[in-house]
Nucleic acid binder design. Structure first.
Lengths: 117, 117
DNA sequence: TTGACGTATTCCCTTATGGGTATATGATTG
DNA sequence: CAATCATATACCCATAAGGGAATACGTCAA
């Protein structure tokens, strides 16, 4: 098997920095494709392709407005990611880190004088 | 160019479900590779390969213990992801009321120095 | 209608994935 | 030393990525 498709889920879709940029821009409000093209400094086809991926995982929604297509953010699919990450939040808190170090030291000490079995 | 390497950053590393599982397991404590092999139901080489990726983005640390290698979690590289996602938290909490005002302001500011139309 | 504009799709190309399988490396025991 | 356990690496393969460039499609203006 190859790597999972970028359209598999929000995790994969958002792994691409350009797509994160797009979401960041759309967080400020609806925008047509050409706006994004200008702001991202990318060629139009690549932007459209990124938008397609985001659409497929429902991170953006489209609305036709004349010959333009207005894209807007739909952040809901990001919630699962946030939830998953929140479970690790304690790990990077200082109190936890302190404890971690203590445990590490204990382990090291143990290794030194516990060479019997 | 092809897709960014899985070892580029935590975003890419964590896009793979198996690697998320591994982190979840290691969150409960240090474990040798064979433990993970059993728990994941994966072949040993694939587990080692996933662990290599996680090591390269510093999401896990290793410690030699006899002929075993004890892997442990280092969640810190996940913090940036969590931070990025937190900016969107309001979106799925339906708490647009407060945020809307900020967004409107941003839009106005942008209109001034942006050369659209 | 024609033509310009805004956007999407297609094709080419290089690169790397992740699983499977075989084998190499390292440490421990006898 | 050899044999064995624990883990890492090397290969092969099918798949798809993301950028570049060309082109197709849909809408609006004249």
């Amino acid at each position: 098997m190859a790597r999972a498709a970028t359209t598999t889920d929000a995790f994969n879709a958002v792994a691409e920095p350009r797509r994160r940029q797009i979401l960041d821009l759309l967080a400020q409000g609806e925008r047509p494709v050409n706006d994004l093209v200008g702001l991202l400094g990318l060629a139009q086809p690549q932007v459209s392709k990124h938008l397609r991926v985001l659409r497929e995982v429902d991170l953006v929604r489209v609305r036709d407005e004349g010959r333009q297509r207005m894209y807007r953010l739909n952040a809901e699919p990001l919630k699962p990611l946030h939830d998953w990450l929140s479970r690790y939040e304690a790990s990077w808190n200082k109190r936890f880190d302190l404890m971690d170090e203590v445990l590490e030291e204990l382990k090291e000490t143990e290794k030194d004088d516990d060479n019997d079995h």
